[in-house]
């Protein structure tokens, strides 16, 4: 009986959390179409989320592309299918690994940063201060970040895809003796527009999730240093899980036959 009560309480708490987050999303989008739009905050968010994420995205994509080429070569050699390395690297990076790894890197770097910053602002009464300055904190803090992430993460994904394919190219040509020209030709020939569009759409969705979750946890954190820590950890975990779940849904939507 006690187990059922605990289970019921947990389910109700989960449903309440989903409801609160859904309301938060609705409030954010309602404000997104309202004035004022904080262009300076938007510009700063573009830099923070996009430009400063480039090194970590580039390195992650480069190493992943290289490792993928090695794995496909090793696996393919069991079936005398080593030649498919360029095609599988391209499809693997563009359809899945590029957007997912960029999404997870953004969750680690950007979601945590947004959640910690906003939670600290709450702890130090800066959110209250915004209210007293006739400024809606969601309009000032959430909307620019969500807009920026939605726009810039697809670009990060495009960069990640390119560098990931380049990582596979480097390993394949320098280590596995592939012909550089035919490797590139195979890559270009095999990729379809649908692959690229799905990659960019995933980037936009993952960026939106990363920023929304960071803002939600930051603005709803408890007081004190522990509250900031809990908000940051919760935001990264929630964003990562939501990104992986969204990835499955989008893959199903784009590629189910």
């Amino acid at each position: 009986m006690r187990f059922l009560a605990a289970l019921g309480a947990a389910v109700l708490a989960a449903l309440a959390s989903i409801g609160r987050f859904s309301m938060f999303i609705a409030h954010t989008f309602a404000r997104a179409v309202r004035r004022p739009f904080y262009a300076a905050a938007f510009g700063k968010a573009l830099l923070q989320i996009g430009f400063f994420s480039l090194p970590v995205v580039g390195l992650t994509a480069l190493f992943t592309g290289g490792a993928l080429a090695l794995q496909i070569y090793a696996g393919g050699s069991r079936f005398s299918a080593e030649a498919v390395v360029p095609q599988i690297v391209a499809i693997g990076v563009v359809r899945e690994l590029g957007p997912v790894l960029v999404g997870l890197m953004v969750a680690a770097r950007v979601t945590s940063s947004i959640a910690a910053e906003l939670a600290t602002m709450k702890v130090t009464e800066q959110i209250d201060a915004l209210h007293t300055l006739s400024t809606d904190p969601m309009q000032y803090l959430t909307v620019p970040r969500v807009f920026a992430a939605t726009l810039v993460v697809p670009l990060l994904v495009a960069v990640g895809d390119t560098i990931g394919i380049f990582g596979g190219y480097l390993i394949s040509t320098l280590r596995l003796d592939f012909n550089p020209a035919s490797y590139l030709q195979n890559t270009v020939d095999f990729l379809e527009m649908r692959d690229i569009i799905s990659s960019l759409v995933k980037g936009a969705v993952f960026g939106t999730i990363a920023a929304l979750v960071g803002c939600y946890y930051g603005l709803n954190s408890d007081r004190g240093a522990i509250g900031v820590g809990v908000a940051t950890k919760g935001a990264v975990v929630a964003a990562s899980v939501l990104i992986l779940a969204a990835n499955f849904v989008l893959t199903e939507a784009f590629f189910s036959t």
């Binding site: 700063k44 009464e125 007293t132």
Partner: peptide
């Protein structure tokens, strides 16, 4: 809210903005 001003216990200044932007925020 447009007719009030508030000094918070810890000042609650916006860390990411220089002093003049804090003061002239509105």
């Amino acid at each position: 809210m447009s007719s009030i001003g508030m000094l918070f216990q810890g000042a609650a200044l916006f860390d990411s903005l220089p002093v003049w932007q804090n003061v002239a925020f509105r």
